[in-house]
Design a binder for these strands. Sequence first.
DNA 1: AGAATTACTGACTCAAAAGTCAGTAATTCT
DNA 2: AGAATTACTGACTTTTGAGTCAGTAATTCT
Lengths: 221, 221
Amino acid sequence: MSSPPVPAASPRPRQRRKEARPAELTAAALRLFVDNGFAATRLEDVARLAGVSKGALYLYFENKEALFEAVVREGILPTLEEGEAMIAAHRGCRAELLRALVLGWWELVGATPYGGIPKLIIAEARNFPGVVHFYHEQVINRGRRLLAQVLQEGMDSGEFRPMPLATAVDLVLAPVLMLTIWRHSIHGVLGDMPQHEPGLYLQTHLDLLLQGLLRQPGSTA
Amino acid sequence: MSSPPVPAASPRPRQRRKEARPAELTAAALRLFVDNGFAATRLEDVARLAGVSKGALYLYFENKEALFEAVVREGILPTLEEGEAMIAAHRGCRAELLRALVLGWWELVGATPYGGIPKLIIAEARNFPGVVHFYHEQVINRGRRLLAQVLQEGMDSGEFRPMPLATAVDLVLAPVLMLTIWRHSIHGVLGDMPQHEPGLYLQTHLDLLLQGLLRQPGSTA
DNA sequence: AGAATTACTGACTCAAAAGTCAGTAATTCT
DNA sequence: AGAATTACTGACTTTTGAGTCAGTAATTCT
């Protein structure tokens, strides 16, 4: 229980890397915030995971809340433009586009550390109304508009059956979000579900969804 | 800013109600844990909301973690037996049973304070692996088995198309869970979505799902 | 090279919230 | 009624972690 503290084989000489620090700190904070929650995360641990001292963290972020906000703001970047580009460039049926958007999102966001942000937002919503407003405007609603457009076009062209638009959008999203949420909560604890390979899960989701949406079933699957 | 503290119109003479306290305390704790998260909830606030002092709370619960565990354990009671009874009693097609189970769950659990527990478990999973194991065994897997049975019977009888069973179960659950999670996080902050009346949302979910599942579309909806 | 600058450290302070317990007032017992 | 019991209180101690800052060492300037 009381072995002498290991001298940490050459504790790596102090480095000065002003440019890289903020991104390294937000990456570390994202990981710990998602895993443990905001309140239960110690800034000393964030700093250590990023390879600096707690003092250094405060050189780059006013306080814990500012770090949280930075984490969320950073999480938007790698996402929506891609989707908006895809939707503009796409030729072919809306069903294929829908598949591409969902699977693309999974690869670009869901499967990366940023996939933890939905869980984080959900868990901390009541403590950070400002951040929620921001995220809702910049991410949620923007993503919804994207999907709504695809569904609307599909309905207009007769490819999809008519449906309540806003509700249908959320029904496309729900399984995708649950997948990432699960990964960052219960799955992380249990090592659950061999059969829940994300690819198969999303494919089945899309199959089921499209069979429900398509006027002529089988025309795409 | 500094009006004299209101004497709290007859501060209600001290009461002794050994029997009722634990349930009142867990009810208060459920509310605050779901709203603010475990770490961000002060036990003094839990006690005040339950109408007792902090000291009294410690007469009934060892510590904060024990209170959390009690909250989750209590949340199972009003649920699964009902579903298992329904499934045993039901005559008629599996599609109707599926509708009844989903809508029944919403009324009995989702729309009540217990509807906050999924969000709570998700948010705190990494900090309470023991509780997650318990919940997974006692609630999640049991609920899944229930739905799997219905889907399997439907497939066997030819009412439903064949599908990967475990995945299909989770696709039934995802929108239902997202509905409760949303209510207790983002919705609570934004007063969001007039059109997201839970009834319509769940009906649309079931319509869409069944159109995908049914071999002869229209035979139920 | 040495001087000047500044990114970084870690021991410190301080506030807040978990947990304790001697005392108080309902209730029950005789 | 008074004595004995015990559910409850709230002021207290202890612990924890956010936030600070005087000092240190890497880098740049001359």
